[in-house]
């Protein structure tokens, strides 16, 4: 399988890259989704700008109570970063679920987020973490919440000329527990459903809960009805089961060879309960 011919630039700086992208060139990061699409000729960009090795997009740092992760950081770097393992284990845990060793060595956080595959893993975590997604163009930068960024299948808040340049996650006190629970597609490794939960238990009741869902429908989302059902409530097995049962309520669930929409909804409630239990068990 040979891609259409294209022009390739490895820019020296982010400004150079953004200038070319403003002129219509397409960004290439790890290429784990784009290159297969180009080989199948589902995508035929005329000019690729390689962002993967730009220093300005390769960093993981803590600043003013927030973690800043450059878009070109690979999934392997996310899963193995001591800073993230210590201060944002949900993101590291989620990255470890992606693809296989070789894909995690090449694929990048920003590339995956920008691609917005409805069965990709990060969106669930970014929704639960209430992460910020920094979008940058030659004209400047803006930050969009995960909730507003993911719109539909392969559709995001990115405007022409913009790239995802950074993910921002607030650092939380140690008493918050998180978990990502995924029913994995046996062939592709993508999420049939994936549920990320961030929760805190104080004085016997749930004092904070955020639930991010991926794989179930055309776009990731926050299951706010599940959150509302558990907020301030004693998290008994019965209460968690009942709340988790709301996760797919009024959602247009996807159906494919792997799972009917009814079965996907069932999986979503089961995995939501699992993720809530796991997150609360890690809440100090």
């Amino acid at each position: 399988m040979i891609a259409n011919a294209f022009e390739y630039t490895a820019p020296q700086s982010l400004d150079e890259a953004l200038g070319l992208i403003a002129g219509g060139a397409k960004p290439l990061s790890g290429g784990m989704s784009l290159i297969p699409m180009m080989k199948l000729r589902l995508a035929a960009p005329e000019h690729l700008v390689d962002l993967a090795r730009l220093k300005e997009l390769n960093y993981i740092r803590e600043e003013n109570g927030e973690l800043h992760i450059g878009a070109a950081v690979t999934h392997y770097e996310v899963e193995s970063s001591p800073l993230l393992l210590g201060k944002c284990p949900l993101l590291a845990e989620t990255a470890a679920h992606i693809g296989d060793i070789q894909v995690r060595n090449m694929g990048t956080l920003g590339g995956s987020v920008a691609h917005a595959d409805p069965a990709s893993d990060y969106p669930a975590a970014l929704q639960a973490l209430e992460a910020g997604i920094v979008l940058r163009s030659a004209g400047g930068a803006r930050t969009v919440s995960a909730k507003d960024f993911f719109i539909d299948t392969f559709t995001t808040a990115l405007e022409p000329g913009e790239i995802v340049s950074e993910i921002v996650v607030p650092v939380e006190p140690g008493l918050t527990g998180t978990s990502y629970q995924k029913c994995k597609h046996q062939a592709s490794g993508f999420a049939v459903v994936g549920i990320a939960v961030r929760a805190r238990r104080e004085n016997g009741v749930v004092s904070l809960i955020r639930v991010g869902v991926t794989g179930l429908s055309g776009s990731s989302y926050r299951a706010e009805n599940v959150e509302a059902a558990l907020q301030g409530v004693e998290p008994t097995g019965e209460a968690i089961r009942a709340a988790a049962g709301l996760v797919a309520h009024s959602v247009d669930a996807s159906a494919d060879m792997q799972a009917s929409s009814e079965y996907r909804k069932h999986l979503a409630s089961v995995y939501t309960a699992k993720a809530i239990h796991a997150a609360l068990s890690r809440s100090a």
Binding site: Y8, G31, M32, I35, P36, Y76, I101, Q102, V103, N105, M106
Partner: peptide, 9 residues
């Protein structure tokens, strides 16, 4: 790093 050389230019 181990990578798949069919998915890289």
């Amino acid at each position: 790093k181990a990578i798949k050389s069919c998915t890289m230019f």
